[in-house]
Design a protein around this nucleic acid. Sequence first.
DNA 1: CTAAGTGCAAAGTATTTGCTTAGGA
DNA 2: TCCTAAGCAAATACTTTGCACTTAG
Lengths: 149, 149
Amino acid sequence: MNSIMENHQHRINDLVARLRQNGLRLTPQRMAVLKAVIGSQQHLSAEEIYAQVRVDYPMIGLATVYKTIAMLKDMGEIVALNFDNQGARYDGSGQDPHPHFICNRCHAIIDLDDESLQNLSATIAANTGYHITDYRLDFFGLCPNCQSQ
Amino acid sequence: MNSIMENHQHRINDLVARLRQNGLRLTPQRMAVLKAVIGSQQHLSAEEIYAQVRVDYPMIGLATVYKTIAMLKDMGEIVALNFDNQGARYDGSGQDPHPHFICNRCHAIIDLDDESLQNLSATIAANTGYHITDYRLDFFGLCPNCQSQ
DNA sequence: CTAAGTGCAAAGTATTTGCTTAGGA
DNA sequence: TCCTAAGCAAATACTTTGCACTTAG
């Protein structure tokens, strides 16, 4: 078992425990949505999650996907990424807040993790007096593949 | 005339020139929307712009406001800020891309301009090979006023 | 004069909600 | 058994579009 799978297994165990703690139920639909989101390096839309979950659970409704997404957001398992156009994409990487790069041509969303950004919030907070709890940073441009076309 | 007003006047002159260049018309509605957005340090929503413009132009339609906003976006005069909930807010500051701070309690949006962020894009671009043309950075937390409550 | 813009209403998206039935604990 | 969650459809919120009339250039 590789480290990514171990990490997923750990998160699933953790999720199960926290559902029980809060009197929430462990349903197949919830497991399926969680696995779809955290099992993908992509940043899926609600429709894409829906399509993927339907492979194994053809009876699931889109509303259930949205409700489960909302629950996972509340639990801090996933993060919604909204952009100016279209609907949200969901980041299930489980990492602390991190920047993203969005390619304007192929629309890929790539997780970034640059050391120089780790202290970003602290620096701003110190300079302004705001109490910062979270941030969102997106870069837009062309990925290497699209640059060469 | 103070520097803010001079700056506004300059932008309006510039806008008029560029409208002419592109065969677009200079209508009272367009002027009113532009003035509402750039004349406010706030980051207004479409509805707020609509309400403000209606003071002087009671006949204007919301669709016209949206169409004008779209035009001003295309011209680079204003920037749309989308968040996870509700509708977009518009930044008419005319500055290069800059970070924002959003208070989770009073929902104020404040323009930031920290020196240490100026070279952010360049640093990331150098480290990753992506060609970065733009960025969006939002900090979330509590403003000083809301911290004390 | 004439093409672009306005204003209205209708259509589109993305997401949420209400309600009845199903199914975990 | 009991109460939360699923599934469906209807509702909502924001924004865009189509079209006949108006108006800036």
